[in-house]
Design a protein around this nucleic acid. Structure first.
Lengths: 244, 244
DNA sequence: GATTGACAAATAATCGATTATGTTCATGAT
DNA sequence: ATCATGAACATAATCGATTATTTGTCAATC
């Protein structure tokens, strides 16, 4: 993406990523912080339920308090952060009950969103689904190499979101994205060691096939099973670690 | 509620409300602002889609920028405010499409939450439902007196939230609350002049009766109809005012 | 007439310092 | 021992000022 505008180039004080920043509209401290914090929470680097000390966090991330507070405030929307007056912010806790709710709501919301996507999604959506499926299938998941896990997680999340992206309901998509984040945190925290035991790849294929074939019944049933199994799986691991 | 703690009394610089502040944990500028802004948006005093000028707002509310920004950031969770980097905050816009999504999701979410409430709600929940119903029925709705409209809106919102409050799913309740806020904004903006035309009171009674009687099928069907009718009603009014 | 570029004004974003609140812990009374 | 008290500390909340970005304006150019 060559710059033809003549506008001043990106500041080179940025140490991360590519030399030419893609302008995805995330150029403020608060927004970058929000992304970094989200990743830190979903990946489990920031422990569930832990208090977020503002001054420590501000020195850690090398920003002042204002954008930090703002980033945290916005993360409440994602269900990843909780707040209490005069007591500050904390990472949203995990619990068996919460996992069960997340699973139940995913079954409810995502199957609905998938049905709607099949109904009104169109050809462009179908292409995106197959592309996302293919990309995920090509992404190897090797428990001994954490970077592959992260890549797989990203592709997996992308697949599930693409699957329902045709529904034409932005609010619903946002809710599903929130649930998916919460769900992924459970997986990345409690299932990091395992390498896709069940034939997950096959399940995803079945769902995608059914979706692009327009078979609502089949695709939704498969998706529901998939989500349900994932939930049961995670619940077992939580129970083993005595998480109530 | 007499003060026996010996802690310093509330500062008397507070000009609003009762002399003895009820400690509901909303004692910071940001939290109070959040409540005031939410009310201003839901009631339509802040026009949908309008930009929120930070410095003007800060002088209007007589606070500094930091708590204002934080309050707005938190209001994103409620779906009432949108944000874009370097372009600030704006009141979430209204549209026919958004109204239709809100209606559809209310049908989907609230009926599910009601079914769950009936399943696991218990006696305490049933009592709360009947109490909320009774309170709303006693609240007169007179289009010529705006203060009665506001009271009715509060009681109505309370009824719908109480109806689903037994479901044991905090995230679902939050989503429903968000949808209800968005829905109420449509009503208060586009239906302020009317006085509960349909036999709304009767509809609410039927839903509540069915709920406490444990008749899931009946209660959910009635609730769905109720939400659907409200949506159609609003859609007509939006169309009349040429809101796309 | 439309487009571009430079400048000025408006507004958003961030910082550093200050104030208010909560927490901890030692002390003394019941 | 248990509870209450109140300093000393840690941390959250807020402010005022500064910096960065966008938006509006207008002249110059094609």
């Amino acid at each position: 993406m060559t710059d033809l505008t003549g506008r001043p180039q990106e500041k080179d004080e940025n140490l991360l990523g590519s030399a030419v920043l893609i302008d995805d509209g995330k150029n403020t401290m608060a927004s970058q912080l929000m992304d970094r914090l989200r990743e830190a929470i979903v990946s489990g680097k920031l422990p569930a339920g832990s208090k977020i000390n503002l001054s420590k966090a501000s020195t850690l991330f090398n920003v002042s308090l204002s954008p930090l507070r703002e980033a945290l405030a916005r993360l409440i929307s994602d269900g990843l952060v909780e707040f209490e007056d005069n007591r500050g912010y904390r990472v949203a806790p995990v619990s068996l009950g919460n996992l069960e709710e997340v699973t139940a709501l995913r079954e409810q919301f995502e199957t609905y969103a998938l049905a709607e996507s099949i109904r009104v999604g169109g050809i462009e959506w179908e292409r995106n689904v197959m592309r996302a499926l293919h990309k995920m299938n090509r992404t190897e998941r090797d428990a001994s190499r954490p970077e592959t896990l992260e890549l797989w997680e990203a592709a997996h999340r992308e697949f599930h979101l693409t699957l329902i992206s045709g529904c034409g309901k932005p609010l619903l998509l946002k809710f599903c994205s929130v649930m998916l984040n919460l769900n992924d945190r459970y997986r990345r925290t409690f299932l990091a060691e395992t390498s896709g035991d069940r034939s997950v790849a096959n399940e995803h294929s079945e769902i995608a096939q059914g979706a692009v074939a327009g078979d609502t019944e089949y695709a939704c049933a498969k998706l529901r099973e998939h989500i349900h199994r994932t939930g049961s799986n995670l619940r077992r691991h939580l129970a083993e670690k005595n998480i109530g």
